[in-house]
């Protein structure tokens, strides 16, 4: 069962989640998709920068840093047992 209420930027560190939707389609979200941040992929926030933003995510075996403001449109769902 998936819980579909969480924004990617609000996901706690080290919590794996599935990307359920990317609500904006522009050059930036397409770039993110090319890096594996697209619907259906698993993503985990792994560490934050000293100022709390950007946040580094582990996705498709790589670490990618994103600004909070850039991932407003990305919704994730955490598996609930």
């Amino acid at each position: 069962m998936k819980n579909n209420c969480c924004k990617l930027s609000e996901l706690p560190l080290m919590t794996e989640a599935a990307i359920t939707s990317v609500e904006i389609d522009n050059a930036l979200t397409r770039r993110m998709a090319q890096l594996g941040i697209s619907r259906g992929e698993m993503i985990t926030p792994v560490f934050k920068s000293p100022f709390g933003d950007p946040i580094a995510y582990s996705v498709k075996g790589c670490v990618v840093a994103l600004r909070k403001s850039d991932c407003e449109a990305i919704k994730v769902g955490v598996e609930v047992k």
């Binding site: 930036l28 890096l35 950007p54 790589c62 670490v63 990618v64 840093a65 994103l66």
Partner: peptide, 11 residues
């Protein structure tokens, strides 16, 4: 135009 920060952190 739109801006954004997407940076890969290599091993």
């Amino acid at each position: 135009g739109e801006s954004g920060f997407v940076l890969e952190l290599p091993p």
